[in-house]
């Protein structure tokens, strides 16, 4: 059980680094939501280890990292984790390209929830929904493949 987290947490560390990694201006607009994608992956492959609580804690870290209102990403990632747990048995049957389309929708929902709650709390939010979702969907097959091989290598 603990062994799994030894693999899961470092992948989230990498995702958090990628989330703030400096990139060219244009790429910034389609920066994939690495943390959300990593969460989806772990919920997908081991739903008994990764879940809402993991989403909540990673969301808190992401909040501090981005300087957002504390709890904003925590709430959105928890909802995302819940959605994935509902969808995971269906999603496992898809190939990665089909999953990519679903990722587009899921990340879009996650960003939408974040945008809504942010605009309720602070009066204005980051309304960039489309391009980060597209970026995430495009990167998904690669990221999925990478995480999958990591998982198999460490047998987590």
């Amino acid at each position: 059980m603990m062994r799994a987290y030894v693999v899961i947490l470092p992948t989230f560390f990498v995702a958090l680094v990628l989330a703030v990694f400096p990139m060219a201006d244009l790429l910034n607009y389609i920066r994939p939501e690495w943390v959300a994608m990593t969460l989806i992956f772990w919920v997908l492959v081991s739903p008994n280890k990764a879940g809402i609580f993991l989403g909540f804690s990673m969301g808190l870290l992401l909040d501090v990292l981005h300087g957002d209102t504390l709890g904003l990403n925590a709430l959105s990632l928890s909802i995302l984790a819940y959605l994935c747990m509902l969808l995971q048995s269906r999603m496992r049957l898809y190939n990665t390209v089909q999953q990519g389309f679903l990722i587009f929708v899921l990340i879009g929902l996650y960003l939408l929830i974040r945008f809504w709650s942010e605009s309720i709390i602070t009066g204005q939010g980051k309304s960039a929904l489309l391009w980060p979702s597209v970026g995430s969907a495009l990167v998904w097959p690669l990221w999925y493949g990478l995480l999958f091989s990591v998982r198999r290598y460490f047998r987590a």
């Binding site: 560390f13 958090l16 703030v20 990694f21 400096p22 870290l61 501090v64 990292l65 504390l70």
Partner: peptide, 19 residues
């Protein structure tokens, strides 16, 4: 709470500023 979580974030920021 925020500043405690801030300690966890330090390595992330350190790594991302490497390049």
């Amino acid at each position: 709470v925020r500043s405690t979580l801030g300690y966890l974030i330090v390595p992330v920021q350190w790594v991302s500023s490497i390049p």
